[in-house]
Design a protein around this nucleic acid. Structure first.
Lengths: 249, 249
DNA sequence: CTCCTTTATGGTCAGGATGACTATAAAGGC
DNA sequence: GCCTTTATAGTCATCCTGACCATAAAGGAG
């Protein structure tokens, strides 16, 4: 923040950097975790897949830029996009990460509920959901960004109420459980999951009214909406991978 | 990372940003959490206290710049500084955070064991440890950065082995407990803390040899060093502040 | 040398949280 | 009326934790 103190300040004493934002937008679709990718139209990496993003405008902070890109790429209105979960992930600054020039990128992670295909105006026309298990080659260091974002999301499901960000405004506990199972890649015991969620104050709250009927078979489930809590005490820990010696029977 | 796709790329199409790193360097001294501050010599905020930091050099990534500044400001050698815990906190990009021009800063958090007064070469001459409970007015948004960094450290003590980064190479469990108590601002039960730490594989490992005798009264404690584990399973949760209604008797 | 204080270390015990599992309820399909 | 499917309600043993109590090993005061 200070030009290594004592040195005179000079705006031209340092190489100018371009500063961009990159977005790792996740959703749960068709039983799998998906990330929003766009196809690049120009070099470098023309034709390759990449994360949506763009330059920070002169009077914007990074978060505003990320929010703006999020609305553009998902095709949602500013108002709808404002309700989505968006958080800064970290900043990537390797000097060679962009072959054109020095570009520092502030990466953000966004979580969205199931949405229609991303066909918004303009830039969104070429955006596409891609299963994180089947990622193509990605431009720049975007594969690394996605890996970091995935791990962050996996970890935050444990000790925050973030899972509801993947759900529509009203959802069943079964749907919430599927979010956990999808993001963590494990199966959870239904009664235990239910007990834990209901015992966490402020995680979900019941919505009265008739249960949802989605043409489904089986007993219809009660609907819930996200509560006011943001953190989980105690945490909902993901089952740890069994050590090699243990049997599963 | 891509100039909002479709637009032609032009290095002059965007305002140049200065990109800096800021360091929140914490240590535990005299029973309190301290942060390293320097006194600014020039405007803006001439005479005010600020976090150490500086511009990222043309061929440096942010982490290298942070590591370089860390060595400079603590007065340690590059080799010694390389062993310190340093992690990216987050990036601050408010357009008005620096009155001179557009400056985006990547903040880092560093944890160091008790050190002699920071009297290194050059820049470190004016660096000083300050108790986080008695911070002066700070330049820029540095008060916010310190607050964010503190909360990050508090949280990471819960589920990582980070506390050992505040300790010298060999330490007693009592010293480790003091780190927790200092950072969290709570008192912990000694036998329970001991049981928990020793039951966490890879957190600490005993070092054989005679126990340390620091002219202390009381039974000398066994020495330990940091183990190889980085995460804590299950976590060591900080006692939650009692809800208002509860009695303490 | 003998108490006393101080710190480290080794225990117990009850309650809470969790994993594994069983049982019942409420829907649709045949 | 069955069977399947999903939701919901328990049970039970185990582990973890907080609140304790007890003992060991040092130095200091008398």
């Amino acid at each position: 923040m200070n030009g290594s103190d004592g040195a005179p300040y000079d705006p031209h004493a340092f190489e100018p950097f371009a500063v961009t934002v990159d977005l790792a937008v996740f959703t749960v679709r068709e039983g799998g975790l998906h990330v929003l990718l766009i196809r690049r139209g120009q070099d470098p990496y023309a034709g390759a897949w990449a994360l949506p993003g763009g330059f920070i405008l002169p009077r914007e902070c990074a978060e505003d830029a990320a929010r703006r890109e999020l609305a553009e790429e998902t095709g949602l209105s500013r108002e709808s996009a404002a309700a989505l979960h968006l958080e800064q992930l970290r900043t990537y600054s390797d000097p060679d990460r962009d072959p054109r020039m020095r570009v520092v990128s502030v990466a953000y992670t966004a979580l969205v509920p199931g949405l229609p295909e991303p066909r918004g105006g303009g830039d969104a026309a070429h955006a596409q959901w891609t299963a994180v298990g089947a990622l193509p080659e990605l431009a720049f260091d975007h594969a690394r960004i996605i890996a970091d974002a995935r791990e962050r999301v996996r970890a935050k499901l444990e000790y925050t109420c973030l899972a509801t960000a993947f759900c529509p405004p009203e959802f069943t506990l079964g749907e919430l459980q599927q979010v956990y199972e999808t993001v963590w890649g494990v199966e959870l015991d239904r009664p235990n999951f239910r007990r834990k969620v209901l015992a966490s104050p402020g995680f979900v709250e019941p919505v009265d009214g008739p249960p949802r009927r989605t043409g489904g078979r089986g007993k219809p489930a009660a609907l819930h909406r996200a509560g006011t809590a943001t953190t989980l005490h105690p945490a909902l820990l993901r089952p740890e991978r069994r050590s090699e010696g243990e049997r599963s029977e």
